[in-house]
Amino acid sequence: MAITRVNARRLTGTLALVLASAAALAGCGAAKVDTAGGSSPAGSASAAAGSAAACGTVNIAVNPWVGYQADAAVVAYLAKNKLGCTVVKKDLKEEVSWQGFETGQVDAVLENWGHDDLKKTYITDKKVAVEAGPMGAMGIIGWYVPQWMADKYPDITDYKNLNKYASIFKTSESGGVGQLLDGDPSYVTNDAALVKNLNLNYKVVVGGSEAALIKSLQTATDQKKPLLFYFYEPQFALSKLKIARVSLPPYTAGCDAVPAKIACDYPPYVLDKVVSTKFANSGSRAYQLIKNYRLTNDQQNLIASYIAEQNMSDDEAAKKWVDANPDVWKSWLPTG
């Protein structure tokens, strides 16, 4: 009997749940997506601290490279400790972060690389996001080789000569042609189109991450192994690892209009900040902070090296930098 009674109770419990979810279903009318995600509480336990009343919760997207992590570390540290906000960091890829503006899961992107198409969709058309000004750093994307290669093969830094050297870049993954190593698949990249349109005997091999790129660069530098790779600045690793850029056909306005036909270099990027419209209109003090904050390439590289090379946690790295540079961030804080 005990068993059946337990069953009955379990059944009642289950039933209650079904009813509850049914009620939830029936309760609201049409459901818009931005009502869905907004209510989610802090992801992990880290968000529980701090007095939320003064500022509320701010959801910061964190894109997968250490430089961005450094931006987020500083902004989050200041928001928590100087403004009393609850900060939720969300590890998201770039484009997914933009979708987050629409679903309400993301309030701010701190370091945006171009993405004019996304700006059109989410800022111009859907009006769920607004620009919040440049973030201070300048972005460069390009193809590189380790410095020793440029020294040894001086003409390698011109793309026209790459085919001559294709055989030394061969690897187990490149299938008979030279390897061009890319990073995270979510990064801004035209490499596949470039290889095709410039008729290069190369294959784009996706390493999967910034870390994979840096590790390969490290090995290539230490062991003098050939490596052609996609890379970018600001980049903390460049303080120790020397590289040389391979010149591609120069960028001209509009030469990258049709993705499949691109045959020119990457443009220089003015990195900027984007926030959700809701967040911008909320009057949150965190919005003022994000709007005001600016980091130069060197500043970002320094913080990033704390994290990546000195193995500090985000908060430790931010604290170290914040404590040492009050003049820089004081002006970011909202007045009043």
Binding site: S21, L25, C28, A30, A31, K32, V33, T35, A36, S39
Partner: peptide
């Protein structure tokens, strides 16, 4: 969206 809204709070 309804399904989404129902499952999220769960």
């Amino acid at each position: 969206n309804e399904i989404r809204v129902a499952i999220d709070p769960l």
